[in-house]
Nucleic acid binder design. Structure first.
Lengths: 244, 244
DNA sequence: CGATAGGTTGATGGAACTCAATCATTGTGG
DNA sequence: CCACAATGATTGAGTTCCATCAACCTATCG
C-alpha cells in the first residue's frame, strides 16, 4: 500500500496510533491482522452526523479514531438524555449486544472518524483467539464498572462535585492519550454536560464561572485549563486526578 | 444421587428452578452438564454475611439462587454507597472482571443461597461452547444497558419518579420469577433504597406514606402491595409496568 | 445583517436535605 | 422473661441547593 497519501480512513490497526488504547495488548501481529480484516473504516463523519439511531438493528460496535461521539436516548416526551461521551480509542455501542437492537442513538459532536467492527465477526474471531475473548469480557466489564461509578456520581454528589469529577475524568482521558491533562477543549456543549450530569445548563455555567473566579479553572468557551488541580480534586472529593 | 434429601446447596443446574433465568436457553444438556461441573454451591449465607469485599482478588462471578444480595462501595469518608440489588436468578460480580480486583463489596440482605462460578473456567468453557460465549457477551451487555437506564433515572427524575420506577422494576422482576407483581416483600431497608436512589431515608419514607394516602400503594413495613398499577406507571413516567 | 443557537447572569420558588424528636421493632444480657 | 439498648421507620420544622423563568450577550451562518 502506498504511504503518505493514504487517507486517514484506510489506516490499519497496525498503523493506528490508538491501538495501544483500543486493542488488547496481548494480541500477536497475526491476530491483529485478522482483526484488521473485519474492521470497516468509513469516511470521516461530519458534526451532528448520526451513527445509529433508536430502533436500528445492531450489527457492529464502534471504535472512535478521532473526534468525539455522543450517545443518547430520546424519551417519550421527545427530550434528549445523554448517556455518555466517547473519545479517540474508546469503544461504544456495547449496550445493544444484548437484544440486538439499538435502544440509544449516537452522533458525532465534531468531525470524527470511527471504525465499524461487525460484532458477529468479533464473536467468531474471539472463539479462535482466547486473548480476544478475554479482552472483550474485560472491556464490557470496564464499561459496567465505569457506569456504576457514574451512578454514584449522579445520585450522591452536588453540582460542583459532579462538574469537578467530570472535568477530572476528561483530564485523565486526555492524559492517557498523551494530550495535556491541564488544558483541553470540551467537545460537547454546556447543554450536553448538564444533561449528562443531571444539571440545568444554567447551573453548569454558574459552576464554571465560580470555579474560574476561585482560580481553579480558566474557561474560555469550550477551552478549559485546570489551574489548581489539587483544589479541583478536593472539590470533586477525588483522591487523584484520574478517577476511572 | 439420592433425591429428596439433597440439601438445597447441592442442586444441579439441571434441577435448579431458576435455570431458565440464569442459564443461556440455547445450551444443550451436555453443555449444561459441563457448566454444572464448574459451579460451586456453598452453604446458605446468613443475613449480612459478606461474599466479597473491596480489594479482594476476583475469581468468580455469582448467581443468586435464593434471597437477595446488596452490592455496594465504601467511599473515602467511610460511607456506604449502594450500587445494586440482585435477586434469585441474577448474576453479580461482573464489574470486577476488568481488573481482576473487586472494587465493590457484596453482602446478603437476608438468608440467601448463591452459586459461585469461577470465571477462568467460564472463559475456558466459552471458547469451546460458542453459545455460552454469546450468552456471556449478552449478559454483560444487558448489565451495561440497565446501568445506563439507571443513570437516566438518577440524573433526571424526582423522588416520586425514582421510587415509582424502582418499585415497578422490582415488580417486573418478581413477575419474571412467577411471583406476584403486585404484592411482595422488600428485602432491603429504607436506608438502602434511599442510598441506591440518591434520596434521604426521610424522603423515601415520606413518598411511601404519600403513595399510600393516595391509594397507589399499601405499605406495611417491608410488605408492599401495588393497589393502582396504572397510577404508579404514570407517576414513574413508564409506559409499562416492566421497565427494565 | 437579521436570525438562530449557545452561553451567561439575575431573581424566585420549590423539592428535597438536614436536624430533631418520636415510635416501632429487634436483639441481648442479666 | 423482661429491661434496655440498638437499629430502623416515621413525622415535623427549618434550610439550602438547584431548577425554572427571564433577560441579555455573543458567535456563527445563510
Amino acid at each position: 500500500m502506498p504511504s503518505g497519501v493514504i487517507p486517514t480512513y484506510t489506516t490499519t490497526c497496525h498503523e493506528c496510533a490508538l491501538n495501544a488504547l483500543c486493542l488488547p495488548v496481548s494480541l500477536c501481529d497475526e491476530d491483529i491482522g485478522q482483526l484488521d480484516d473485519i474492521v470497516g473504516r468509513g469516511r470521516p463523519l461530519q458534526r451532528n452526523q448520526r451513527i445509529y439511531e433508536t430502533g436500528d438493528k445492531f450489527d457492529s460496535i464502534y471504535a472512535v479514531r478521532s473526534g468525539a461521539i455522543k450517545v443518547f436516548n430520546i424519551d417519550a416526551a421527545g427530550d434528549e438524555q445523554v448517556i455518555g461521551f466517547y473519545m479517540a480509542g474508546e469503544i461504544f455501542g456495547l449496550d445493544a449486544i444484548h437484544d440486538q437492537i439499538h435502544e440509544s442513538s449516537a452522533k458525532a459532536l465534531e468531525t470524527s472518524a470511527i471504525c465499524e467492527i461487525p460484532f458477529q465477526k468479533v464473536e467468531e474471531l474471539s472463539i479462535k483467539i482466547p486473548n480476544l475473548q478475554n479482552y472483550i469480557y474485560r472491556m464490557l466489564s470496564k464499561e459496567i464498572h465505569s457506569d456504576q461509578q457514574l451512578q454514584l456520581l449522579l445520585s450522591k454528589k452536588t453540582a460542583e462535585e459532579k462538574i469537578g469529577t467530570f472535568l477530572l475524568n476528561l483530564s485523565g482521558r486526555y492524559q492517557q492519550r498523551k494530550l495535556s491533562p491541564n488544558s483541553f477543549r470540551l467537545p460537547m456543549a454546556r447543554t450536553d454536560i448538564g444533561n449528562y450530569l443531571g444539571l440545568a445548563v444554567e447551573t453548569v455555567s454558574r459552576v464554571f464561572t465560580r470555579l474560574q473566579k476561585n482560580n481553579v479553572l480558566q474557561v474560555d468557551g469550550k477551552e478549559v485549563s485546570i489551574i489548581n488541580t489539587t483544589e479541583l480534586c478536593r472539590i470533586a472529593h477525588a483522591d487523584t486526578a484520574n478517577p476511572g
